[in-house]
């Protein structure tokens, strides 16, 4: 008899755990997805969560712009993945940085002169051109299906020509709120090209230091589209875009994305400098300037650094 009681108690415990699990699961379903929470962080920049944007996915351990490179970033806890898209001859958006497929695949030719089937027959190369992998060039649709609910993407190379095509795919996959478009054109040009569509997408203008009218460029965007984030590029410490980011954008509560990839984009405060001379001298400096997000080629190292500084508190205040 005692044996049965013992068995019964064990069953009760297991059953309770099971119920808790199911309830936890339901509660989880009701709460916002990680992608939605990331978007909330972008819309409400805070001093306790710095957004990490990974350039071309985790290209060190998987081919750039590949599904594997995206999966690595999701596992790493990256918030936004910057990817490049181009239109094939037969009208499909595929993830590809260069105009041609030569550098990153085992094939050759321009994306615009190849069909999707032709591109799908190729295999992506690993970084440094070290032989080709088993990975194929993904379409925008495949990318959005993969990232849905998990992470946001920053679409590069689409802005001047292919916003409509990209938007169709985002609608189809239910991921319009997962994609941040970006571009160099002023707001008037974008309105002329895309009209009301601009109100349906998330758009992040780029502020360039070589643009003498960058203050007016920013002003015009604020008046019309009122974007909540700007990609801010500064070759020197006193470049105008940085000044704008520290003054106007802070006042407006807009987000400031710094690009730590190369010297000329961030007054020399690059990922390489962070590794060679210490993160405080580089990423730390960008944060002192008020950056709310950093685009990086070293996502794992940046996340580790931000965690050490307690700048990755994901839970948001209600």
């Amino acid at each position: 008899m005692f044996r049965y009681i013992k068995l019964y108690s064990i069953l009760c415990i297991l059953w309770t755990l099971g119920i808790q699990q199911v309830m936890g699961q339901q509660a989880h379903n009701l709460s916002p997805s990680r992608a939605e929470q990331i978007l909330a962080h972008l819309k409400n920049p805070s001093d306790t969560y710095i957004v990490v944007v990974s350039h071309r996915g985790d290209w060190r351990y998987a081919p750039e712009n590949s599904l594997a490179a995206i999966q690595h970033c999701i596992a790493m806890g990256v918030d936004v993945i910057e990817l490049d898209f181009r239109l094939t001859k037969d009208g499909h958006l595929v993830a590809m940085h260069d105009q041609t497929v030569d550098r990153t695949t085992n094939g050759s030719g321009k994306v615009s002169e190849l069909t999707l089937a032709e591109i799908k027959s190729l295999r992506l190369k690993n970084a440094a051109g070290v032989r080709h992998s088993r990975q194929q060039v993904p379409t925008l649709e495949e990318v959005m299906e993969l990232v849905k609910g998990k992470v946001m993407v920053n679409l590069d190379k689409t802005e001047s020509k292919w916003v409509r095509e990209a938007y169709q795919t985002l609608k189809k996959t239910g991921t319009v709120d997962h994609a941040i478009f970006k571009g160099n054109d002023d707001v008037k040009t974008m309105r002329e090209k895309y009209g009301k569509l601009m109100d349906s997408i998330i758009y992040m203008p780029k502020l360039w230091p070589e643009n003498a009218d960058v203050v007016e460029f920013h002003n015009a965007y604020e008046k019309d589209l009122n974007p909540f984030y700007y990609e801010t590029i500064f070759d020197t410490e006193d470049a105008l875009p940085l000044l704008l980011a520290k003054t106007r954008m802070k006042k407006d509560g807009d987000g400031f994305l710094a690009i730590a990839l190369w010297d000329e984009l961030c007054a020399g405060r690059t990922d390489e400098k962070a590794l060679l001379e210490g993160a405080d001298s580089s990423w730390g400096w960008l944060l002192e300037q008020g950056a709310n997000a950093i685009m990086t080629d070293r996502p794992q190292e940046l996340i580790t650094y931000l965690e050490e500084r307690q700048l990755r508190t994901f839970e948001q205040k209600p």
Partner: peptide, 28 residues
């Protein structure tokens, strides 16, 4: 039979737990 059923449920629960924490990026 009940024991088997519940043990199975428990194991599924554990598995779900693990996946969740991976998705949150904690196990990387």
């Amino acid at each position: 039979l009940i024991a088997i059923t519940f043990t199975g449920l428990f194991m599924v629960s554990c598995k779900q737990n693990k996946t969740a924490s991976t998705a949150a990026g904690e196990e990387v």
